[in-house]
Design a protein around this nucleic acid. Sequence first.
RNA 1: GGGAUGUUGGUGUAGUCGGUUAACACGCCGCCCUCUCAAGGCGGAGAUCACGGGUUCGAGUCCCGUACAUCCUGCCA
Length: 500
Amino acid sequence: MTVRVRFAPSPTGYLHIGAARTALFNWLFARQRGGRFLLRVEDTDLQRSTDESTRSILEGLAWLGLADYDEEIVFQSRNADKHRAAAERLVKEGKAYRDFTPKGERADADVKREIAERARSASGAEGQDHRANPFRDLPLGESEARAAAGEPYAVRLRVASDGRSRFTDMVYGEQVRDYSEIEDLVLLRSGDLSPLYNLSVVVDDIEMGITHVIRGQDHLTNTHKQILIYEALGASTPTFAHLPLILAPNKAKLSKRKHGEVVSLTTYRDRGFVPAAFVNFLALLGWAPEDGSEMMTREELLGKFSPEGIHRSNAVFNFSDTDPRLWTDQKALWMNAEYIRTMPLGELLPLLRPWMERAGLWRAGYEGEEAAWLARTLDLIRQRFYTLEDFTGQGRAYFADDFEFDDAAVRKNLKKEPRLAELLPRLAERLERVEPWTVEAVEAELRAFADDEGVKAGLLINASRTALTGQSVGPSMFDVFDVIGRERSARRLREAARLV
RNA sequence: GGGAUGUUGGUGUAGUCGGUUAACACGCCGCCCUCUCAAGGCGGAGAUCACGGGUUCGAGUCCCGUACAUCCUGCCA
């Protein structure tokens, strides 16, 4: 049987990195087994679902390279009639019943507290009895009559009182839950008879022929309810694999409200992550390959991925919301830097181009006669960059003359030595005469000049770095001279003399 | 309250059928390299393997209990 999996996000916000990882694992599983990878947008919560969220999720998946869905995207809201029909069938078969109990109104914010309170009071004398509902055993005929008379009702699944539900999770192993712990869950809301999550998911998964449900561990306990629905519907249950959650540094749930943009996948795109690097990082959250590899290309990931390597404890996504340098997990940042400095330039360039274009730094010549210069320059500066953003930020001076000077760099490398005001222009003169303009020739000339003036070469080198790039750090200075070129170098040395 | 799941250095992970000084990556510190900063090389600090019992010649690995964390317990998804 071919493997068929689906990623099923609800479009109530941006794509959460935890969801992104779920998508990745589904994708890896499908691709590795020659199966189908499907996408289902769970937009049944009309209040909160937005088209913008859907777009953002699709964008995020595309950015990760996971948008090669094998079939049309399914929008769950469009299947509501099928979901309702399934529930109605269950009513006719006696596997579900109409509950005419008036619907209780409750404010969303109080839901959690209410649940807790109710549970506490219910656990008093004789425990919770979900089966006490007076409508549970209402004869079907009477139920039909009251419904026909227009009395509002919800549809609940009739859950057996004795026995237990069990399934084997690919990650969490054997799972057992006593029926007595499962209430007669609502399938259809009273009033508009709109389907509820558990019903919709099951009906859609059956219809889509899903063989493996890979999703977050937050659904683990509710899986038993869904299995009950599968059984009532007479369908075979898929195999389940639940993934450990990704937590915030304080081990709390990672949420937009509390943690902001770090949890949004698009943040990583917008802040200059290389998709392959982020995929690599994400894969390592809650999973490890047998051979202990860490840096893995997508192909290697496909080769090494196995559900057995997924572990059961939640992972902490480590970041600080006070220190901007630690805006996201340090290992993610490190990995991104690693990709940036080691990936083939031919792959880096297409990722970089949009950044340069947006910053107004892209030139037509980069595709022609300046291609070699661009390659050399990028290769030189990428060695110490962490994100794609750095190329147009710290790296701006390599591509444009209107770059900014870092205050600390100016103080440290230019203002510290007053003589530089006069040395720099003279260094410019000397360098203008260097022929040919090579790394070696420039170095020889600068060192000779330093000797002549009786100053340390380092003084001129560091001053030059700030003069030419605005920074106090960067690649070996003679490479910088080479790449910036004779004319621009000389001009910047002269201009920088004014900053001394 | 009930149920489920989990707990190895700051973080991510490895630790096979229980067997010597608990391994790797990130981060941190130092040294080397050096024109700066990285990278790279070398070295270091940091874990009584949540805690308490038990089984055993021997337990991170097995058993019981406790604590803590997360999730579920909804006519949300």
